[in-house]
């Protein structure tokens, strides 16, 4: 087989893996029980899924113009996805969109309770 064929094969394999990871993300979104668990499925396999698909494009095209653009796509996805996940996760926790019976431990509950208690009893002690 020529080098081109090998690149084609590697590129197709990456494309398939990326697609499978994205499929699993979709399944997880449906199957996971509460908002916080769903955030894992919605944001995470996507990062690796996107990485594999971008890798497939890079292997297929193999020129620096494309690769530099793919690098930027990946970089900004990696910078923004955690922030989005954090904001939605934080809001989900505060609005109680989670099923506590499925949690093994919750080490944040006490802190939030204490903070809201302080807030209720003494506004001057308002934590930041």
């Amino acid at each position: 087989m020529t080098a081109d064929t090998w690149f084609e094969v590697a590129s197709s394999a990456c494309l398939l893996i990326g697609a499978l990871l994205s499929l699993a993300a979709g399944v997880g979104l449906l199957r996971f029980p509460d908002a916080l668990s769903r955030m894992h499925a919605a944001t995470k396999p996507q990062i690796a899924g996107l990485a594999f698909i971008l890798l497939a494009i890079a292997l297929e095209q193999r020129n620096w113009g494309t690769i530099s653009t793919l690098f930027l796509v990946m970089l900004f996805q990696m910078l923004t996805a955690p922030v989005a996940a954090h904001m939605v996760g934080r809001a989900a926790y505060r609005t109680r969109h989670l099923r506590r019976e499925l949690l093994l431990t919750d080490e944040l509950a006490d802190v939030v309770d204490r903070a809201s208690h302080d807030l209720a009893t003494d506004p001057a002690n308002r934590p930041e």
Partner: peptide
């Protein structure tokens, strides 16, 4: 990143159970 992606993907499609989570400080 790669290892955990496949683990979470497997958790998502594993039909036997619903994963238990924790909030860890």
């Amino acid at each position: 990143l790669v290892r955990a992606s496949f683990q979470v993907a497997w958790l998502a499609i594993d039909p036997r159970r619903v994963p238990t989570s924790s909030i860890v400080a």
